[in-house]
Amino acid sequence: MNSGIFAPSHRRRTEIPRRRGIPLLELNDVSMHFATGGGGRLRGGGNTVKAVDGVSLTLREGQTLGLVGESGCGKSTTARLIARLLEPTAGEILYQGADIAHLSQRELRPYRREIQLIFQDPYSSLNPRHTVGTIIATALRTHRIVPRRRELIRVQELLEVVGLNPEHYNRYPHEFSGGQRQRIGIARALAVRPKVIIADEPLSALDVSIQAQVVNLLEKLRREFGIAFVFIAHDLGIVRHFCDRVAVMYLGKVVEEGNRDELYGQPHHPYAQALLSAAPDLAVVRGAAPQGRIRLVGDVPSPVDPPSGCRFRTRCWKAKEVCATTRPPLRPTTRTQYTACHFPEPPAPR
């Protein structure tokens, strides 16, 4: 793989200082509330949707963090907050120790190339009027990565890195399959040599066989370039394969976060247990006895009016009075695992 794509840029620009000993990225009690009705984000009548409410996460260099949970739990909103496509209502977003939560668009410019997004839909995320070469070269030109005379060479290098034919730079997006388009999106994200890539359900629009190819590509990029990933997906098997750590979200909050093997092996939060029990088990397909599944009762509450105390209590079989009156903090349950539950315990052995 051509590591030349991460060579220094040709013009001097503002660099983000590297600070040893601190996380690459931190979210501290970050919230994102949207007002329904007229009057702007938090003004005027209507209700307030608490899409993300007090989320704290940590990402270190080269690490992969998976975000999982039901649709509408706030995963994609969290991704857009990290990329600063949204300005949070409250909380800190620290990149290399600097708070970028409320920076202006001009102040954010040097951070834009450090944090990149791979979007869910490879069909609508590429401009159909531009060639692949123009799409990738725009990122190079905006951040002054290479001289204009070398743009085509760099575009072809990037296409080769993601497994596409370098000679197809002059084709349009409609001439590629869904998997190839997602590779183009990955090449566009790589063009600016980011330290963090946020992959927002990058596999959901792809066939299963293509999903495996894209995951293997992302793993290769992580290993060879040391890129840290925030990986959002519904497929718990892929998350377990790709991610070092996993955070489980429910109704705008992180309810459990920890080391991949420990969280999958011994989840302490009831919701995490129910979520993992619903995942397909290949062992059963191969003839093993099926394990008991946890079936949740009731619907997910509205983020406009979430339950008091623990947000999962209305569907939890362990809920007691304290769950309705006191919000459980995210606290350590093992050396590497954190759970927001008044009664955390691993599932009973079967």
Rank of each mutant, 00 (worst) to 15 (best):
K50M: 01
K50Y: 12
A51L: 02
A51E: 05
A51Q: 11
V52D: 12
V52I: 12
D53M: 08
D53S: 12
G54W: 02
G54N: 01
G54E: 06
V55W: 00
V55N: 08
S56R: 05
S56D: 13
S56V: 12
L57W: 03
L57G: 13
L57K: 13
T58Q: 15
T58G: 03
T58W: 03
T58K: 15
R60L: 04
R60P: 11
E61A: 15
E61C: 08
E61M: 05
G62L: 10
G62H: 09
Q63L: 04
T64D: 00
L65S: 09
L65R: 07
L67P: 00
V68K: 10
V68Q: 05
V68M: 02
G69L: 05
G69H: 04
G69I: 01
S71R: 12
S71Y: 12
S71W: 08
S71M: 12
G72S: 01
G72Y: 07
G72Q: 03
C73H: 10
C73L: 05
C73A: 15
C73W: 07
K75I: 13
K75Y: 10
K75R: 07
S76V: 01
S76G: 08
T77M: 04
T77H: 05
T77K: 02
T78P: 06
T78K: 03
T78R: 01
A79V: 14
R80K: 14
R80L: 14
